[in-house]
Design a protein around this nucleic acid. Structure first.
Length: 439
RNA sequence: GGCUCUAUCGUCUAACGGUUAGGACGAGUGCUUUUCAAGCACUAAAUCCGGGUUCGAUUCCCGGUAGAGUCACCA
């Protein structure tokens, strides 16, 4: 079909932390480009000197890498360093009479009395969008729009068109907030003799109120670094983002990047905006946690645990109870893991199960201690503990008469893992000592 | 307001013009060897409205309505 190599672009503007919506747009570019063996060029749109900051550029690059959606960084271009290039085009445009220096009247504060305007041919522009089909605009309403504040200061639309042209961009996949910018950019392309790229406008990711995900309203939650800091897995974020606005048409929900690259289909991208649903992200993240190798899982969890708590045995218990690693922080501050490392303190009434008398409870625990004592230290596994305890519990009216006080004696918590696994982790001596204390 | 785009459960979405409109998240109920987590089963929940075209519209067309985006000497 096409023998020309596909070139797409990541053109972030370093005026804030890497935005999650931007990450999704880049991801779609990435999937599309990779499946076509194309190239992704990288460009920092930093012409706004007031708002552009080096730290933001660093955050963007760092998080692009974290997500694993890297463009070809060797192509990196900074608009702020291309003043001479733009100047050349502006001069050419003026000498071709496609633009002119305009003396401005009724100047508002902060505006200049001389700018460069585009001589609008005032015609209809129809462009094809991969996702939406033909879109038509009458450019008359644009008037003679400004393309540069001065020879050294091009406006965004001009810089973008020149850069896309010089960088050989063949496909522009961007958010659909770019739709209304397209006609004026096409006008500029035609004026400088640049070919028209193929456009695809992706639906925006929106919030529950159906509005654009704004930093103002959602704070740090719109930045990728927030998800990294909360202990989400990058593959889960990618998985989640890919599924907002696009679907492979199967029931599969959990995807790895490599599979996504294979099945992605730009033509199947949804037209309407998609709400960012954090609960689904959590679920997807949990699914990816389950798919981690034992080694990776342990390493990740240990990153969030203080040295003295880095016990491999509690890894599965934690893994089952979190949806993202940052949840460990909450478990820690709630003291949910303390009982693994020191004997719990609790009210002795807590040992009572329903209305069972204390003497009976005490008796039950005593027989449990006896049964557990018969297990050798090496065989003190959750299976064996369970077998021994259930033998006793099954003879009681309610199994809870034994299981509840034992769990309480071991953990001291109303909600905790079952007593068998806790017993295994604590080991024979500690388990029996806690039970004896309870008696 | 002009222009542009969009419209299936609360949310993400599936459905050659013919399906009891499917799946997932979330919610609810129950089961699973006390609780929590996990797991399992089940339940509730949608085609914006009105006209066409058609034997038959979620699907195609038109008109409403609603929402969003954009209208900078920001990017």
């Amino acid at each position: 079909m096409e023998n020309k190599k596909i070139v797409t672009r990541f053109p972030p503007s370093p005026t804030g932390l890497f935005h999650i919506g931007n990450a999704r747009t880049f991801l779609f570019n990435y999937l599309f480009t990779k499946q076509n063996n194309g190239q992704i060029v990288f460009r920092l749109e930093d012409t706004d000197k007031e708002r552009s900051k080096q730290e933001y550029a660093e955050d963007i690059i760092e998080n692009i890498k974290w997500l694993g959606i890297e463009p070809d960084f060797s192509t990196t271009v900074k608009q702020s360093e291309r003043t001479e290039v733009y100047k050349k085009y502006i001069l050419k445009l003026i000498s071709d009479d496609k633009a002119y220096v305009s003396k401005e009247k009724n100047i508002e504060v902060g505006k200049r009395d001389e700018v460069i305007r585009f001589r609008n041919p005032n015609k209809k522009i129809v462009f094809n969008d991969l996702i939406r089909g033909d879109i038509e605009f009458d450019t008359t309403e644009l008037n003679d729009f400004v393309i540069a504040k001065s020879l050294e200061e091009p406006i965004y639309h001009l810089a973008v068109v020149i850069d896309d042209f010089e960088m050989g961009v063949t496909h522009v996949l961007r958010g659909d907030d770019g739709i209304s910018n397209t006609p004026r950019q096409i006008l500029i392309q035609e004026a400088i003799g640049a070919p028209r790229p193929i456009y695809a406008h992706l639906p925006l990711m929106i919030d529950t109120d159906k509005a654009k995900l704004s930093k103002r309203k959602h704070g740090e939650k719109v930045s990728v670094s927030y998800y990294k800091n909360m202990g989400y897995l990058p593959e889960a974020v990618v998985n989640f983002l890919a599924l907002v606005g696009w679907n492979p048409g199967t029931d599969q929900e959990i995807w790895e990047m490599e599979e996504l690259i294979k099945v992605f289909d730009i033509k199947k991208v949804q037209k309407g905006g998609g709400v960012f649903n954090p609960e689904k992200l959590d679920w997807i993240n949990k699914e990816h946690i389950k798919r981690l190798s034992a080694e990776d899982l342990q390493n990740k969890i240990f990153e969030w645990l203080p040295k003295e708590m880095q016990n491999p045995k509690i890894v599965p218990i934690i893994a089952e109870r979190i949806s993202k690693f940052g949840d460990i922080k909450n478990m820690l501050s709630a003291g949910e893991l303390d009982f693994f490392f020191k004997a719990p303190e609790y009210n002795k009434e807590k040992l009572i199960y329903k209305t069972v008398p204390a003497e009976k409870i005490s008796e039950n625990i005593t027989s449990a201690v006896k049964a557990l004592s018969e297990i050798t230290e090496n065989d003190f596994t959750k299976e064996n503990i369970k077998e021994a305890l259930m033998k006793i519990a099954n003879n009681l009216e309610n199994r809870g008469e034994l299981l509840h006080p034992i769990r309480m004696a071991l953990s001291g918590l109303d909600k905790s893992p079952d007593p068998f696994i806790i017993g295994e982790i604590l080991g024979k001596n500690e388990t029996i000592s806690r039970l004896q204390k309870a008696i």
